[in-house]
Amino acid sequence: MKLLLVEDDAQTAGFVIHGFRERGHVVDHAPDGREGFFLATYNAYAVAIVDRMVPHMDGLSLVRALRSAKIQTPVIFLTTMSGIDDRVEGLEAGGDDYLVKPFAFSELYARVNALARRAPVSTQQTVLRVGDLEMDLLKRTVTRGGAAIDLLPREFQLLEYLMRHADEVVTRTMLLEGVWEFHFDPKTNIVETHISRLRAKVDRGRATGLIQTIRGSGYTIRAPATAP
């Protein structure tokens, strides 16, 4: 995929560009907000990675300008401020996600992928399917191979999040934010605990496990047939 990176710090830019190119993606780099706006207007990017503090036009203004120009490229903000108000500000300006520097590359990669593959808003799915696992969002039921699986509300939410991001790597932080709405790092292994319980209910006694752990990155749910 083709990505735009608006970042003035050469080292961070190099780190991000290197990471994506290594995985076979194209990254255009703008060292300031004006150039970033220019590039974003004339090229179609899958995702724009925008640092909030860049010269000439700061990240927030850049995204506001893009949105008012009807450019809907998904945007993930990068910031050194671990401020609690900043995230809300970024989202209100039209950003889609938010990552605090410094970050692990795997975290950024997973989030960019999630944004790039995000289904258009119009497709309101009521049933999610991964292999023989089926989730009915209206009836709030989950079945695997026709057999009902009884889930607690939190487990249902967790599975829904994974299934909405099927075939993608979902990081621990993404789960904490998306399922628990925790915007901080808990000290206990709450994600691991719930994943292992969910996995016990979904995958126990089955020949193929759908929920997989990607070491050092996070989790993914994928049907065996599409597995690489």
Binding site: I84, D85, P153, W180, T188, I190, T193, R197
Partner: peptide
């Protein structure tokens, strides 16, 4: 400064959902 963003919230609901989230964690420990 966060005070300006205060909203009315369901303290009971919040506590209850946290209990549901952390009970398995405690159990595993």
């Amino acid at each position: 400064t966060r005070r300006s963003g205060f909203r009315r919230l369901d303290l009971s609901g919040l506590a209850e959902s946290l209990v549901h989230s952390f009970a398995p964690v405690a159990e595993d420990g």
